[in-house]
């Protein structure tokens, strides 16, 4: 039997071993998340015990979740709201600028600087270490009175995601036929109209992929948020870090806040799974 790649004849026993190994790896992969879910439904006293089965081994409670959404409601909701606003705004700006630039590099020819050189220069911005601009960002935002302000973080996250967005949009647009736009332009349609009414709709999957990727990166970002926020502009990742106090780590709190922060990006990643590898490998690998 020839199945997919690299596979010759397969005996059923072989497949059993394969599945066994894959299950082991799946357990290793899922364990921290499952453990966090379990811990988030434990009372503080139980959260330090290695018990797994609710009702049998421990009494499930909503203590951690009530604490997050009732006792410290304002803090949690503000962080959640900030995370949503920052990720939404920064990925919108990223997508807009990225789609324009990607389209330009895919459809027009630049002479003095070659298209490829411009594109690679843009991409190279994604590679330098974030800490290399951390100090100037702090000083700039201080001067602009944008410390602890959502706008400051949105600006920084846009910078962080833009290079990859341009690069991926270039990639998506170059795969699409340009005949439609050319035909429209011959019929008297302007360049901008051709872009908005013809190129954008056919590139929709690529646009969604870039938007969602930027959203995930912004949502997960931690370094710039702790540097640029103290209280008002705090996001969920910073709130998680805040559960480490002088008394130590509150397991139930870490667990519930982490689950809260994990759910949106994981759902988006699952929806986007076809494009995730392409995005993370900077388009080097297409699924």
């Amino acid at each position: 039997m020839i199945t997919e790649h690299g596979i010759g004849k397969r005996k059923p026993i072989g497949i059993t071993i394969v599945i066994f190994i894959l299950i082991i790896f799946a357990i290793w992969t899922l364990f921290p998340v499952i453990w966090a879910v379990i811990t988030s439904f434990k009372e503080p006293g139980d959260s330090y015990k290695p018990t797994f089965i609710p009702y049998k081994q421990f009494k499930p409670t909503l203590y951690a979740w009530k604490n997050a959404f009732i006792t410290t409601r304002d803090r949690t909701l503000r962080a959640l709201r900030n995370s949503i606003i920052i990720a939404t705004l920064s990925s919108t700006v990223t997508l807009l600028l990225g789609a324009f630039a990607g389209y330009s590099l895919a459809r027009y020819e630049f002479r003095k600087w070659k298209n490829k050189d411009i594109a690679l220069w843009i991409l190279s911005n994604r590679m330098f270490p974030p800490v290399a601009v951390m100090i100037p960002y702090f000083l700039i935002m201080q001067k602009l009175h944008l410390l602890d302000n959502l706008l400051g973080i949105v600006m920084v996250h846009t910078t962080m995601n833009l290079p990859l967005a341009v690069w991926l949009m270039l990639d998506f647009f170059s795969e699409l036929p340009k005949d439609l736009e050319e035909a429209a332009m011959i019929d008297g349609c302007g360049h901008f109209k051709a872009f908005f009414y013809i190129a954008i709709p056919i590139a929709a999957p690529g646009l969604v992929a870039v938007y969602v990727l930027s959203f995930i990166f912004s949502w997960n970002e931690f370094l710039f948020v702790i540097v640029l926020s103290f209280k008002k502009a705090m996001t969920l990742p910073v709130l998680i870090a805040g559960s480490l106090t002088v008394r130590g780590l509150d397991f139930w709190k870490v667990a519930s806040l982490s689950i809260l922060a994990i759910i949106p990006p994981v759902i988006l990643a699952l929806v986007l799974s076809r494009y995730l590898v392409r995005g993370l490998t900077m388009g080097a690998i297409k699924e």
Binding site: W35, W219, A241, L257
Partner: peptide, 18 residues
């Protein structure tokens, strides 16, 4: 297998610390 890399790294860090 998609799950770990989609999680916020700081959540990963604190869950493992726990």
């Amino acid at each position: 297998y998609l799950i770990p890399m989609a999680c916020p790294p700081i959540a990963v860090a604190f869950l493992w610390r726990m």
